[in-house]
Every structure is written in structure tokens, then in C-alpha cells.
Design a binder for these strands. Structure first.
Lengths: 354, 354
DNA sequence: ATTGTGCGGTAAACCGCTTAACTGAGGCGT
DNA sequence: ACGCCTCAGTTAAGCGGTTTACCGCACAAT
């Protein structure tokens, strides 16, 4: 392994000078700079991050702590991660994905080792035990998501209010009055406290109330299966509904499938609007989902930036809320003609198979 | 920060003794062991991994190098990663996901820093430049996937031959004679050399030939969109086909959607068998996909083990090939009754919309 | 001529841990 | 009683950088 010493020797300077040049922490004359750079080139020098980390107490590694067990790592998360990693690299940091449990014990383990300078926390719960762990350890961190209590916590998050407002407005503009939200399943202990679900549901209640519409919510977990079941519940419990908002993208796939399966046409019979969705998932539905596109790339980047600001001692980035933007697909249209009367029997419903 | 010195002091021993105890590298009497352990407890000592890494030249970190740009990080990959991470943790290693480019320059960067003890390489190409990089750097590595030339490379991979054999047999047992493979798009430069696609196609040619069936292959990239298009091509180019094997799981979703969209019933009119698929994706189709389940958990674990064996100097794990196992869904049934004659016109085809 | 003083550069003390070489106190065979 | 081995512990030399204190020098101000 070629070390700084080797470089210094070959360039005829002291190793401190090499270090100063490398870190740009003290000026170096053009002549010596050239000699050193040549020496580094000749020798193929690469600075050892471990030694640097030990001496400077900065590893230049930041971790994205992801609860791999509780939350599946799907395409949305993948977006967060890659954009965050890119942002980190631009500032000479490494972003690595670290699978940790939601309870914080593995996180504490990780922090104790002194391996990471900071943490980007994902899938934040409203009252997240991991935050205590981070604060106790004194490790800088940024949240993608928000807790209830966010005094002085640097965070970025989806602007759920705007997102839901825009979504509902879109449906209203298409003439819909009968809406249903297929929300998250807050009874599931894993998600009881899960920010996006709680906040979306809250926003929905608020927005719908402001339109003087009835609040109709069906809980549903984050799978296609569950989405199908939820679709069935819509048909029996709210047959008058003409438009369905779906919080989870995988559930949205199930909702579309479920409705089609029972002989309904999308968007003729029902409009479906998927709330937090990436294009890849939207494309998996037939017809392609109209969606509020999760601002994954923006948030990943902003989250990393917020953390790096702290690490570099710059003035902190103010908390930012980014709404999901409407991306028209083919699952939203005007409401079907109001039924004459009674049951859900409609043209097409005859073909129901299950 | 509480260091080993503090612990040693409090326990009244030298810091070397503490180190020996911690690493179990030299015997320590029960008495001193107890004193040291108590001291560590009292002080809340956590060993500093960075210092350890510098001194021992082992970071106990292994990287899973993932070409995040070229390959989307989907559910399958997520499976590989989490199972590999689990296996690593069991052996006191950390597995982190490192996004690197496919060309090897970022990988070289990473290795130069001395941050990782070894690398698990994913999405291996038949002739992968990253392997040269790893060998030059002298970094131990294991492949999930295979190159063409695999002299002495420790690797694990999918057993494509068995997988395809089992898949074709399954369809044959259901009475199908007219098969099509919707394969990968090897014309795409990003995938020209991509092992799974090349190997699956090869295996298919072989297997189908052994059954004396015609070789019918349609290239298709890894998206739902492309799957829909491929379905259309099947209808026009091979209208006699009754069963379709699909290499990529997202394409499989598109194939099902595309066929249904043009008024065909699955599995009545066409059987669809998705070759390398995870249950989550299979569930997104309606009806649920019959699939060959990607052995992600097994391979992630085996890959990590193979690498750790090298790192620990144990005798190497022999290369292992694991087939994908058949998981019946609802997209395979017997072939439709042979048409009387002519075109693809069938009951239901009237409903075609696009 | 004297005194700052700004600047490119050096020497050396760490950073927290590992590990090879060494020490010293029993235990044992003869 | 002597040497010899074993074994728990200790000493100290790194690992490859960073960083503080210091040094000599040229140039400007006094």
C-alpha cells in the first residue's frame, strides 16, 4: 500500500505538507503542489479513509438507516436512496444503506462504533425511539419524515396537506362528489405511528370536510392483495363512490385489479388516484395509474443536504415540505352517470367473476 | 468517548489485556475477565471500529456493490440485500449497499480507500470490468452471478438450466406445445452481456430443442410497458402460441395486462409463467402470476458466506447454483381448444379496446 | 538597524486499537 | 535445587493519517 509517507518522500517534502495539500487546509506553493501531485500520480496514491477517519474523527460516511424488516425496500425507497447517495457523493461523502431495526437497538450499536458521521433516518414514526438514540449518541442526523415533536430537528418531508388538497381538487375538477380514501392500516402495530399514513389521513379528513363531503375511509395495508380486498369493501360499503384515492401505491394496483376483476371499467366506472407513487409502479397498472408522484429524488437530496449542512457547520437548512405532484395517467375521468336507483348493478357488473 | 485505556485503567490491567479479551485472541483468567467486563459495563464502553480497522487492517465491513444506475433496485434486489446483510451480521460483519457504476471506476475508488474488507458483486455481466478492478486491488470478493470465465472465482448464481427445464416441463405437463419466450433485450447495450438474460435464453433454446419444439423468442426490456408491447407481438407473430414464458417479472405484469387489454383471458386463452420473480411482484398481477420464484434469500446468504469464508481464511465454499422454484399462481392452465382456423378471433377478442 | 509579521514548510504528538516480543511467576521433571 | 516450559499479563511499536506548535525567511514598517 502506498502511503502518504511514500508520496512525501518522492516529492521531497514532509508528510504534513501532503496532508495540507490534500485537504486544502493550508496554502502550498505552486511548485511543491506540482511535485506532490506528480508523485501521487506516479505512485498511484489513494488516501486511506480509515486512517483519516481515526485522526480527524470524521469518517465521511453517512448512513441511511432503513428499517428493512418493517418496511419493504421498494422502488420508492430506492429513489430516496439513490438520490441521497448522489447528493452525498457530490460533497465528498459516502452514503451507505444500513439496515437497522425500528426499535433503535441496532442503530445504537451502529453509532457506538464511530463509523458514521451522521444519519439520514427514513420511515420516521410520529414518536420514533430511534431519535432518542441518535440524540443520546450526539450523532448529527436528518429526518426524511417528521415526528410529532420536531423542535430543532432538521427534517424534510412530503407536504401531505398540499398533496391531498391537489388530489382532491383534481377529482373535483373532474366532477366527482363521491370520494373514498383507501388509507393505511393504522391498526397494524408496525404502522400505528407511521407518519405518512397518519398525516395523509388527517389531511384527507380536513380537506374533504372543507368541501362539505362525507368522510369515507377504508383502512388497507401496503400490498396488492389488501388493495383488492379494499376495492371489494368500497363496492359493498360505498357503492355510490365514483372516485377512489389510494394512499399506498401497491394497494392502488390491487384496487384497480380488484375493480376490473369484478367487471368494472377504469376510469369509466371508477376513477382511481394513487397518492404516493413512483412512475414505475404506476406503469404496472392497466390502465396506467394517475398518481401524485412521490417527490423521492427531491427529498433524498434535501435530506442529505440538511445533514451535510450540520456536519460542515454551515447554517442549517430550514425544514422543507415538498408536495407530490399530479401526474396524469389513465385512471381518472369524469364520474359515471348517476344510477337510476338501488343497488350497484351497472352495465358490466354482470361479468363479475368473484 | 470512553476508550480502551479507560477500561483498562478502571479494571487495573493493561490495554492489551482488554484487547485480548475483546477479540478472544489470548486467554484471560476468569477473575480479570470479570473485572474488565464490569469496567466496560460501568463505563458503557463501545469499541471504536475505526481504530480497530486501522490497526488490524480489517474494517469488518463488506460492500454489496450495486449498479444503481443501470439496474433498478427492485424487490428482488432488496431480497438479496437483506438476506446478505443478515448473514453478514451473524458473523460480526457489516454489509452495506454501495451504489457504484457498472464500469468499475467508482468501484476502484471505493476499494482504494481501504474501507471495505470485501465485496459482494451483483448483477454480474458475462465479461465484467469490475472483476479486473477487484483482482487488481487484491480485494476478496464473491459474485452473485457468473462471468464466462470463472476460474477460481467464488460465486453463487441461479441455476438457469434447471429453472428453465422445470418451467417448460410445467407447461408441458399442462399440455402446452406452443411456447414463446419473452426474453431480455440483449440489444440494449446496458444488458448486452447481462448473465441472467443470456443464460436463460441459452437454456431455453436448449430445453425447447430437446422437446423438439420450435424456438420462439421475443426480446423485451425490463418494464411493464415493454411487456405490453411484447404481448402484442406475440399475438401478431405467434398467434398459435398457448403459453408464454416471461423472463423479467415486470415485463410479466405487462404481458398479462397487455393480453387482458386486448380481450384475452388469462389463463384460459394464454398461460403465462414468469421466470424470475418474487412473490410481491407476482401478487401485483391479476390473476396472480404463476412464477419460478427467484432464490434471492438463498443466494444473498450464500454469496455473503462465500465471501466471509475467504476473509476468515476458511476453505472456500464451492460455487453453488440454486434453481428458482415453481410457485403456482393462477396464470397457468391447459391450452385453449385449438382454433378451427385462421386469425386470432376468439370470444372476447371483440372487446379489444386498443 | 530593528522589529514585526505573513507565509511556506517541518517536526512530532496524537487518534484508539492490535500485536509481536518480552517478563515473571508458578509447576514439573530429574 | 536446577533448568525448562506454560501461561497470564505487560510493554511498546506501529497502522496512516491530521493537526498543533514552531521555524526560518523575505519583505514592509518603524
Amino acid at each position: 500500500m502506498v502511503t502518504m509517507k511514500d508520496v512525501a518522500q518522492r516529492a521531497g517534502v514532509s508528510i504534513a505538507t501532503v496532508s495540507f495539500l490534500l485537504n486544502d487546509t493550508k496554502p502550498v506553493t505552486a511548485a511543491t503542489r506540482a511535485r506532490i501531485e506528480q508523485a501521487m500520480l506516479d505512485l498511484g496514491y489513494r488516501r486511506n479513509m480509515v486512517a483519516r477517519a481515526l485522526a480527524s474523527r470524521r469518517t465521511h460516511i453517512i448512513a441511511m438507516a432503513y428499517p428493512a424488516l418493517e418496511h419493504r425496500f421498494g422502488m420508492s425507497t430506492s429513489e430516496f436512496f439513490t438520490s441521497a447517495a448522489e447528493a452525498a457523493r457530490k460533497d465528498d461523502y459516502h452514503l451507505v444503506l444500513w439496515p437497522v431495526g425500528n426499535d433503535g437497538v441496532e442503530l445504537r450499536e451502529l453509532l457506538g462504533q464511530g463509523l458514521v458521521d451522521g444519519v439520514v433516518l427514513m420511515e420516521v414514526q410520529l414518536d420514533d425511539p430511534r431519535i432518542d438514540v441518535l440524540q443520546q449518541a450526539g450523532t448529527p442526523f436528518a429526518l426524511i419524515g417528521r415526528t410529532t415533536e420536531l423542535e430543532g430537528l432538521s427534517h424534510v418531508d412530503i407536504d401531505f396537506d398540499t398533496t391531498v388538497e391537489d388530489a382532491v381538487r383534481h377529482l373535483r375538477e373532474h366532477g366527482h362528489h363521491e370520494l373514498v380514501l383507501i388509507s393505511g392500516d393504522l391498526d397494524d402495530p408496525r404502522f400505528h405511528d407511521y407518519g405518512p399514513w397518519v398525516r395523509t389521513e388527517e389531511a384527507y379528513r380536513r380537506v374533504v370536510a372543507s368541501y362539505d363531503l362525507p368522510i369515507r375511509i377504508i383502512p388497507c395495508s401496503d400490498t396488492t392483495q389488501a388493495g383488492k380486498a379494499a376495492a371489494a369493501r368500497v363496492l359493498t360499503e360505498y357503492p355510490e363512490a365514483t372516485a377512489i384515492l389510494v394512499l399506498n401505491e401497491y394497494a392502488a394496483l390491487g384496487v384497480v385489479a380488484g375493480l376490473k376483476h369484478t367487471g368494472h371499467d377504469i376510469p369509466r366506472d371508477f376513477s382511481v388516484l394513487s397518492l404516493l407513487t413512483v412512475p414505475e409502479t404506476a406503469a404496472m397498472a392497466d390502465p396506467e395509474l394517475t398518481m401524485m408522484r412521490t417527490p423521492g429524488p427531491e427529498l433524498g437530496q434535501l435530506g442529505t443536504q440538511a445533514l451535510l449542512r450540520q456536519l460542515e457547520g454551515d447554517d442549517p437548512l430550514p425544514p422543507q415540505l415538498v408536495p407530490a405532484k399530479l401526474c396524469p395517467g389513465a385512471t381518472v375521468a369524469g364520474p359515471r352517470a348517476p344510477r337510476s336507483k338501488g343497488g350497484a348493478g351497472r352495465r358490466g357488473a354482470r361479468k363479475a367473476r368473484s
